[in-house]
Design a protein around this nucleic acid. Structure first.
Lengths: 129, 129
DNA sequence: GTGACATCTTGAGATTTGCGCATATGTGCT
DNA sequence: AGCACATATGCGCAAATCTCAAGATGTCAC
């Protein structure tokens, strides 16, 4: 494959991939979000990329605020499972918790989440047959 | 734990979790999306829950349309890697491909994706310190 | 302080997922 | 047809992740 370099006229300064439109590639690279930004975006989506957590979030969207036991009953999971998923959601600032006695009440921490869910619902509604 | 049922006054028709506000739980359960809907939502988010795919999508947001080799150069991955992620994105109808000769050009298949990305960007921008 | 309850954390097992390499498919050129 | 190129696919391995069950933490009541 890469043995006899009989023809090697193109000096690629970046990496070993062929480029059709280098100018466009450079322009897009400059304007698109950086690697860190992409990582943060991915983390947000990753947290929501699980049916169990989606159900938790949608339940909180409807209820506004729920304690862990009621939340577990709503989504049909054990309390330990629910608590574990809530920890992941909390780490990403998707939900916030308020302590009242020995109960802990959870609610959404960001209004964007509701919009994200609505958009995703439209997305799956229009494309899925 | 579940050995000596000395006190068992509450008949739970659903499962073995305690309920603080059964009426509210029932109401939320009825109004929130079902399990299938949650699974579809999770699949959409899951596909975007990876830095590499986020970068591909954001690159396509800027470029509109790119062939695999330029896309690989833009996001800084090998063509095989890029192709594999594109397969995942295509399976979820996030991107579409158009063949022109031996090149294959990719673009976003759904306008919702742009909105999702913008919302997620706002989300990570306002909360991250 | 002791006991009961709600929630949180931890650990091992099982499943999934991404990466790298090699190869297959499909297209255009001579 | 034969060759070269762009992309897609299949396989093996390492890493991350979900799940389940048990124990730890913190709070209220007596």
């Amino acid at each position: 494959m890469s043995e006899s370099a009989s023809t090697d006229p193109i000096p690629l300064d970046t990496c070993a991939v062929r480029l059709v439109d280098p100018d466009r590639v450079a322009a897009v690279r400059e304007r698109m979000p950086g690697a860190e930004e992409a990582q943060r975006l991915a983390r947000v989506f990753h947290v929501l990329g699980e049916p169990a957590r989606v159900r938790i979030v949608t339940a909180l969207l409807e209820a506004g605020e729920l304690c862990v036991c009621d939340l577990a009953a709503t989504v049909g999971m054990t309390e330990a499972q629910t608590s574990q998923h809530l920890r992941v959601l909390r780490a990403e600032r998707t939900v916030r918790n308020r302590r009242d006695g020995r109960m802990v009440y959870y609610s959404l921490d960001d209004a964007h989440v509701r919009l994200l869910m609505d958009l995703a619902l439209q997305h799956v509604a229009h494309g899925e047959g």
